[in-house]
Amino acid sequence: MNTEINSYFIIGVMSGTSLDGIDLAYVHFEKKTNYNFKVLASTTFAYSEFWKQELANAINYDDVELSKLNKAYTKYLADEISRFIQEFKIDELDAIASHGHTIKHEPDNNYTLQIGNLPEIAMYLNTKVVCDFRVQDVQLGGQGAPLVPIGDILLFNEYRYCLNLGGFANISDKSDKQIIAYDICAVNTVFNYYAQKLGKAYDDGGELAASGKLNEELLQKLNSLTFYRQKPPKSLGIEWVRAEVLPILEGAELSVADIMHTYAIHVAQQVANMLNFNKDKVLVTGGGAFNTYLIELFQKYSDCEFIIPKKEIIEYKEAIIFGLLGVLKLENKINVLKTVTGAKKDHSSGVTFNAVKND
């Protein structure tokens, strides 16, 4: 790697709370006036039923079980990254930048855990690995999330808002010469949960939600959740969904279609509440960008222009940006912003593991 050239070949790796799989993007970054990027290869390796169950149940594991899972997942993740390298015949590689998989996220308790970030990952891959990006921010008093806004500034600055619809909806708002970003509400963690009750992996195009009917009482209960009245910085984890959202939905005793329909309107209203009334451009990425019914609801409740980019950006934006976070860490430059996470200071987060010895 030659930092004088400001050119990096990086594999960005992301696993989200919706448990769709592991997203991998092989990206060439170049620093000229700004950071430019080109995705050279990308794919998603779906989780097996075994890993879906393990990762979904891990929130209930004790420390011994979590340690065992962390070791197993680190080896599994390394194997999947190796598979990606082999399938796409990648021979020029400066580093791998990996998010790992979030098991617990409790920033108010000064704790967040992403597994798959053990030092052994660099040994398995025989390559420099930059990972564990969230822990330092939490130690500095931040939420440890969201981390993608630095990429929204450096790679997607032409949009006022960048909205990601994954397990949760999170947004970056670039205004007043600064950026704020935060989680808005749960999205695919809820939609997938209910689609699976009907034997489907997810709600394709939002068809299930579109087929239902609105329940006004349920909608009001959802919109009354206290999280929505909190000011940023703020972030969400699966713990919140289980403790706050699912009890309301289950208690409604409605059909799956009616629950999903009402919840989709809830998501659209919460997103609209975070947007101003100008016709600003909103870049929409994440799996939820393929939910055409949800996008129609966004357009109904907001005056903004919702831009759906090419599939590569929709699916791999987070993996691309974690690649950029890795580049910034290697350059010892700021990759996490205090205005976004609430940390005491801007900082360069992440841990670097070399194949032979650790930094």
Results as ranks from 00 to 15, higher is better:
residue 45 F to D: 03
residue 195 A to K: 12
residue 129 V to P: 05
residue 99 H to D: 01
residue 280 D to F: 09
residue 255 S to R: 04
residue 236 L to N: 06
residue 266 H to N: 02
residue 114 Q to A: 08
residue 139 Q to H: 14
residue 232 P to G: 15
residue 326 G to W: 03
residue 134 R to W: 12
residue 117 N to M: 10
residue 238 I to W: 11
residue 359 D to Y: 14
residue 269 Q to D: 09
residue 89 K to R: 10
residue 353 F to K: 05
residue 25 A to S: 13
residue 229 R to S: 15
residue 168 F to I: 11
residue 152 D to E: 14
residue 110 N to W: 11
residue 359 D to K: 07
residue 217 E to I: 15
residue 68 K to E: 05
residue 20 D to A: 13
residue 136 Q to T: 13
residue 345 K to M: 08
residue 344 K to S: 09
residue 174 K to G: 03
residue 206 G to V: 12
residue 216 E to S: 13
residue 172 S to Y: 09
residue 321 I to Q: 11
residue 151 G to K: 11
residue 238 I to D: 08
residue 148 V to T: 15
residue 98 S to G: 07
residue 283 L to T: 11
residue 307 I to E: 08
residue 58 A to S: 05
residue 154 L to P: 02
residue 305 E to R: 06
residue 1 M to D: 01
residue 267 V to F: 03
residue 14 M to G: 00
residue 295 I to V: 15
residue 74 T to L: 02
residue 99 H to M: 01
residue 82 S to I: 03
residue 219 L to R: 06
residue 153 I to E: 09
residue 307 I to R: 10
residue 47 Y to Q: 00
residue 116 G to D: 04
residue 297 L to P: 08
residue 36 N to F: 13
residue 195 A to N: 12
residue 322 F to K: 00
residue 283 L to P: 12
residue 218 L to G: 01
residue 158 E to Y: 06
residue 235 S to E: 01
residue 313 I to Y: 10
residue 88 F to A: 02
residue 34 N to T: 12
residue 318 E to S: 15
residue 210 A to S: 04
residue 328 L to S: 10
residue 124 Y to I: 08
residue 248 I to D: 14
residue 292 T to D: 12
residue 234 K to R: 08
residue 115 I to S: 14
residue 13 V to P: 03
residue 247 P to Q: 00
residue 111 Y to K: 12
residue 219 L to A: 05
residue 176 D to P: 00
residue 226 T to P: 07
residue 27 V to L: 05
residue 27 V to P: 03
residue 79 D to E: 14
